[in-house]
Simulated scan of single mutants.
Amino acid sequence: MGTHDTARTAIERACGTARSLPELFAGVAEGLARAVPADAFCLNSLDPATLRETFAHHDLRPDPAVISRFFEIEAGGQDVNPARALAADPLGAATLYQATGGNPTSSARYRDVLRPLGLDHELRVLARDRRVPWGMLNLFRATGSPDFSTGDIAFVASLGRTVADGIRRTLVLGAADARPDDVGPGLLIADVSGRIRHRSPTAGHWLADLDDVDWHVARVVSQAVEGAAMIHVCGRNGRWVSLHAEPYGDSLVSVVVEPARPARVAAMIVEAYGLSVREREVVRLLAGGYTNTEMSRVLGLSRHTVGDHVKSVFGKLAVHSRTELTARLFATVDR
């Protein structure tokens, strides 16, 4: 078995067996390292609706100010190879040198983030399923190393569907495995560069479930410099946590850390289950307490057709009642 085949088998195994995003991406990173040498990596899950990052697994160790600058650039959407551009590309993959025509210094991400970290080459690959983006694979090589080859690009791009399926599967399992927590919101104070200056014990409780807290705090702080901002992050145990930041005085940012509320994550979980547009409408009404008769009236469908949709939804989500459905979708929410 060749190197690529061995790596592909390892990645397929990780995507088919992992029960959490950290476990999934650790397996993907290990598999990639066998076939595509890189000096650093950053693997992300994305919210399909907004293309915003929901989880990151990486071996970068940047200063919080560099992290903040990275997310500032990403939020602007003006640099090369943003997720939206890759989503429109048939291959869904590109290198920094390709995108800049061999002039990486034209990229703010290269000038302000990669070069200070000693990285010269970047490969970005979108992980998508049925053209729905679920994640991003970012590989980096140090200054003086060769750029990623056409073969490297093609191989990593060929894994996009597998990784996307793995992310979807893991989100579904996380929603099923997660348990509610009675702990309320917490508060932390950070400076504008993203460095944490104070955290309450309750904030510490929620942050303890997140990998790389500095990364997520710098990310939300970078978005809150001019006003309120919120991000949602998937924790190691499948629960979703919201970080809501807003300016606090001239040089500080306050961040409320709390379990994510139903409406903020349910849409993404529903997407992960592969429900049709009509089935999503049924889920929304079921979660709102509508009866089959009421749904029939709202949707303009017969009760028989509504009943068929309900059965299909229950089957895909592996539940047997409306109560189980609500618990499955909103298991990440503090009750």
Rank of each mutant, 00 (worst) to 15 (best):
M1G: 15
D5L: 12
A10P: 08
E12A: 14
A14W: 04
T17P: 11
R19P: 03
E23L: 11
F25I: 03
F25Q: 03
D39M: 09
S45G: 13
L46P: 07
L46Y: 03
D47Q: 07
P48L: 07
A49Q: 15
F55G: 08
A56E: 01
H57S: 09
H58S: 15
L60Y: 01
L60P: 01
I67R: 05
R69W: 06
F70Q: 05
F71E: 00
E74S: 06
D79M: 08
A83E: 04
A85I: 13
L91K: 12
A93E: 11
T95H: 12
A99D: 10
G101Y: 15
G102W: 02
G118R: 05
L126G: 00
D129F: 04
G135V: 04
L137F: 02
T143L: 09
S145L: 05
T150W: 00
I153L: 14
A154H: 12
F155Y: 11
G160S: 09
T162G: 15
A164N: 06
R169L: 04
A176G: 08
R179W: 06
D182Y: 09
D182H: 08
V183C: 13
A190L: 10
R195G: 11
S200K: 07
W206L: 15
D211L: 12
V213T: 15
D214R: 11
V217R: 15
R219T: 04
R219L: 06
V220G: 12
V221P: 13
V221Y: 13
Q223F: 01
H232W: 02
H232N: 04
G235C: 12
W240K: 01
H244N: 08
H244W: 11
A245F: 04
A245K: 01
A245M: 04
P247T: 02
S251P: 11
V255A: 05
V255W: 08
R261A: 05
R264T: 13
E271S: 14
Y273R: 03
E281S: 01
L286K: 06
G288Q: 04
G288M: 03
M295C: 09
L299V: 07
L299K: 06
L299Y: 00
R303G: 05
T305C: 02
H309G: 01
F314I: 06
R328T: 09
A331P: 05
